[in-house]
Design a protein around this nucleic acid. Structure first.
Length: 268
DNA sequence: TTAAGTGTTGCTCT
DNA sequence: AAGAGCAACACTTA
């Protein structure tokens, strides 16, 4: 679930509720979730430090602390971030937790343990080291860059949108959503899209992601608040197109299933 | 009860 | 060398 819009919601949660707070204690409940640093070391690095800001690049969340280092979080397939009130108990599957001086805290919850937490020196160095492409929603990511990325690829447009090394933030769910909104068949070779079609896709991609964020993204309860023409709530076996009610079709690729409307997104 | 499914990594094969 | 396909990771839900 956590793709760009979902992680952006987490970022705003941290920015609104944790910025300026002093980390009283960092607790690692599951050492398997921590990468490149010992839980002990991580706890020592964070204790007593103030949270400066929350940033995001693609599906990665960065909680920047005053030492100028940042806690990097990836949520895997179903992780989330939840505020824990001072008197509250931590949610099930909490793998790590930050406790603030007021007694309340922030829980990193991840049932399937597919996510990762690490520490980095800066967002830019982490992004460079990981080889991540530009954030799909970054203001500096211009349409000309997008079209040139597509123009070089013979792969399916869906695979290109999901490739974090080409651009960061879009996964299986939102690649389906974006292509549905743009009315493009997911298996279309990226390079075969006309320049104007690619430019329109770029705009649709940004609008769709922004709209998802506006609606609260991710969480199941947000599904009801999404625009009526969103594919997301319908992308399951037996689901029908929110526009023309045609039975949705699926396309396999990269070990996952893509949903699309065979009528609105015909294969050319 | 079996299988699919959200993402990433790393490996093999073409 | 790009790109396709697969298994692995752990667990829930249909």
């Amino acid at each position: 679930m956590p793709e760009l819009p979902d992680v952006e919601i987490f970022r705003r949660l941290v920015s609104e509720h944790c910025r300026g707070r002093v980390i009283d204690q960092a607790t690692v409940n599951d050492p398997g979730i921590i990468e490149g640093i010992s839980p002990d070391h991580l706890e020592r690095q964070l204790r007593g430090r103030r949270i400066q800001s929350a940033e995001r690049h693609g599906k990665h969340l960065f909680i920047v602390v005053e030492s100028a280092r940042a806690l990097v979080m990836h949520f895997g397939t179903n992780g989330s971030l939840q505020l824990v009130p001072a008197a509250g108990t931590v949610p099930e599957f909490t793998r790590a937790e930050l406790t603030f001086s007021g007694g309340d805290g922030l829980a990193y919850v991840n049932p399937r343990r597919l996510g990762r937490i690490s520490l980095c020196d800066s967002v830019t160095s982490f992004v460079a080291r990981s080889g991540l492409g530009p954030d799909a929603l970054d203001a500096g990511f211009k349409v000309a860059v997008f079209t040139s990325i597509l123009g070089l690829r013979k792969r399916a447009i869906k695979a290109v949108l999901m490739d974090q090394k080409l651009m960061a933030g879009i996964g299986n769910i939102y690649s389906d959503e974006v292509l549905f909104q743009a009315r493009i068949y997911p298996g279309t070779a990226a390079a075969s899209l006309a320049r104007e079609t690619a430019a329109a896709l770029f705009r649709t991609m940004r609008e769709t992601l922004e709209e998802a964020i506006r609606c609260g993204a991710g969480a199941e309860q947000a599904a009801g608040r999404l625009p009526a023409d969103f594919l997301l709530p319908h992308r399951h076996p037996g689901g029908t197109c929110p526009r023309c009610h045609t039975l949705l079709a699926t396309v396999k690729g990269g070990g996952r299933t893509g949903y699309y409307c065979p009528r609105c997104q015909p294969a050319s």
